[in-house]
Design a protein around this nucleic acid. Structure first.
Lengths: 219, 219
DNA sequence: TCGTTTCCGTTGTAAAAACAACCGAATTAT
DNA sequence: ATAATTCGGTTGTTTTTACAACGGAAACGA
């Protein structure tokens, strides 16, 4: 687990905490390292959760499949990102989503009670961690609101436009790549892949954008 | 503002804090009371926010209108609920939504920095407030995820079914009422009102549910 | 290298939604 | 009490999507 300390240092949760302190915190927070192969589930819908997790290697999708097998990707987790904070509160119910490893991945689990139960005398870092956690979940919240923005669009076309233009703005360039292939983008926007592919080509033919694989240029 | 202390006492943010302590906190947190008439905006999209707000009278909608005038209601705020926590972090960008008073309303504003900057010696309550705030935003997070669940359904019918059955589960009864009229429900689910009304009647004719105004019975 | 799988664009059809327009009933305002 | 407005159901038309099925190209594996 020690080899991932540099990764942890860059995460939002440990922002402002030195590597030595992180190492000390690992045992204090009862950190556990778990490894998953591509295609394995990290968490399953319906389960209970008493941890906050950070992805330190690989790539995850937070998703949900309905009765009919339609998958919708709630969000994508990249290295250094935290997940599970929504279930931090003790009264939070069962998990509403699956978490799937879409690449071989390593995940570090932290005991949630250890983080939020501040022990002001012993651990200086604790109040910093609580505040960091707070900012992180606040940001996740905004991310969800942003996604609700795409989803609330009525047509596939509008969903695409709002997602792509937001992504261009976020990456600060009219040329950018997205972390999805076509099927995944369709699942993310909760639309049919072929219909989306079709719409994407219409947008291209109308001169609004260009693309090649997951690389896009907006005009 | 004092008359609302009993309301504040019941909120998640002040959970476990006595009325006397709340009164002391009000000035410490630089609380401001603002009054809005039905139809007035509490906050506008694009603005900056350095406060957390609690609704102490009335009813609010968090919503967004697109270029074409399609309104989508992100969520509904009832008395005692907090909002704005998503913008608590100092790096959080401009507001993504409007907040509209749908009834005459009173809102208390709290300075966000005052809450999250813990002063461990002076104010015992502060660490409790931070933890409460954390749980509250965590819950809001789950609420958004739940809403994404409805929104990711492909058809109006499925959106209705998932929303109504979740609401029945949440209110723990097959008979329940919802906080929306038809137009608002349509805006909440981001669908056309007439199409939704149509679908609702089909569901009724098929014997899946009954309704009268905003009161529903699931079978 | 050759076979297999994945990815993605394309097409046609059936189903569903959006939109617009209308009307009666209930609610609110004057 | 009456006028005005809001609310919700209904209908028909147009637009859009979902779905299924196909094929070529690229990526992958043995």
């Amino acid at each position: 687990m020690k080899k991932y300390i540099p990764v942890l240092k860059k995460t939002q949760l440990f922002s402002g905490v030195g590597e030595d302190e992180i190492e000390a915190m690992l045992s204090c927070l009862q950190a556990r390292l778990c490894t998953y192969e591509k295609g394995e589930y990290v968490l399953r819908e319906g389960g209970r959760l008493e941890n906050i997790m950070i992805l330190v290697r690989g790539k995850l999708h937070i998703q949900r499949d309905d009765y009919w097998g339609n998958r919708s990707i709630i969000s994508m987790i990249a290295v250094g990102e935290m997940f599970g904070e929504a279930y931090a509160a003790p009264e939070s119910g069962p998990l509403l989503n699956d978490v799937l490893a879409v690449e071989d991945s390593d995940v570090i689990f932290f005991d949630i009670k250890r983080i939020i139960t501040v022990c002001p005398t012993a651990c200086r870092f604790h109040s910093a961690a609580v505040q960091n956690l707070f900012f992180a979940i606040s940001e996740k919240n905004r991310k969800l609101i942003r996604k609700l923005g795409y989803m609330s669009k009525r047509t596939t076309r509008e969903k695409l436009i709002s997602y792509l233009s937001e992504e261009a703005k976020r990456q600060n360039s009219s040329t950018f790549s997205i972390p999805f292939n076509r099927q995944q983008l369709a699942d993310f926007l909760s639309v049919d892949r072929s219909a989306m592919s079709n719409e994407l080509c219409k947008l291209r033919d109308e001169g609004l954008l260009e693309f090649e694989k997951n690389r896009f240029v907006l005009h």
